[in-house]
């Protein structure tokens, strides 16, 4: 069984947010749900300022608080390390959203059909797309995945359920990289199997010092950062995006 992890190279990231968009389109997430988020940080005082950027997907923690508190077992940890959300079983209690220290959970307050940016109910458009919402709806997300065959892929599945980054489970199971990793123009995101000593992630972690976010909380995240230092209380966010409706 693979042991998946992500390595993010902060020396390369330019904060372009292409990963945010790639994730959005691939996973069909509704308005203001930013599964992948990129922080744009500024530190210091003029003229000794430092500007840097930090992508933040779900950490897919090995000691996940969200998994522990899910009353119905909709949020569970797979053997390959992905922390998945069974959107058929989720009852929308939002305990996982409360428990997660990273804030990666998004609740579908609205009916997804009405929450995809624009009103797609256009006759002329439906003639081209067959009336799907959104028009770029990805059919891969409807299938069940994993040996347990549960529906864990995609966003905007139903009103009243929680969703979050899935490490693109529907792509990973086909041997592809998550959309954010595959697209990063600066090749700052890496994904792979930690149990394989020759994988990119293993080699990077052997060679370079790394950190994980909020390690002191004991969540054992599977997302490692190289080429930088964790944000401190002096780090300010600039150019924030209003996530969540």
């Amino acid at each position: 069984m693979a042991r998946y992890a992500m390595v993010i190279d902060l020396e390369r990231c330019t904060g372009c947010r292409a990963c945010v968009e790639a994730c959005k389109v691939e996973n069909n997430t509704p308005t203001a749900n930013l599964w992948m988020y990129v922080f744009r940080f500024e530190e210091g005082e003029y003229p000794n300022t430092h500007v840097w950027f930090m992508p933040r997907p779900c950490m897919h923690c090995d000691n996940a608080p969200c998994v522990k508190v899910c009353p119905v077992g909709a949020r569970y940890k797979r053997l390959d390390g992905l922390t998945a959300t069974d959107w058929e079983r989720c009852i929308g209690c939002r305990y996982c959203e409360v428990a997660c220290p990273y804030g990666v959970n998004y609740f579908n307050w609205k009916d997804p059909a009405e929450n995809y940016y624009l009103d797609w109910n256009d006759e002329d458009l439906a003639a081209v797309t067959g009336g799907t919402t959104p028009p770029y709806r990805n059919p891969d997300l409807d299938q069940p995945y994993g040996s347990e065959q549960r529906r864990v892929a995609g966003g905007g599945r139903a009103k009243g359920v929680i969703e979050k980054c899935t490490f693109c489970v529907h792509r990973v199971e086909q041997g592809l990289l998550p959309a954010c990793v595959a697209n990063c123009p600066l090749f700052a995101l890496h994904f792979g199997d930690l149990d394989d000593p020759n994988s990119t992630v293993s080699r990077l972690l052997r060679r370079k010092p790394s950190f994980r976010l909020l390690e002191e909380q004991g969540t054992q995240p599977r997302v490692y950062y190289i080429g930088g230092k964790p944000p401190t209380t002096e780090t300010r966010q600039i150019e924030e995006v209003k996530a969540r409706v």
Partner: peptide, 23 residues
């Protein structure tokens, strides 16, 4: 671009289908 796109290139999918385009 070697297999990658900037955020605009990806978001273009919505321009392709925008019902607010001049019909």
């Amino acid at each position: 671009n070697r297999g990658t796109l900037c955020p605009k290139g990806i978001a273009q999918i919505m321009a392709l289908y925008d019902p607010n385009r001049v019909k």
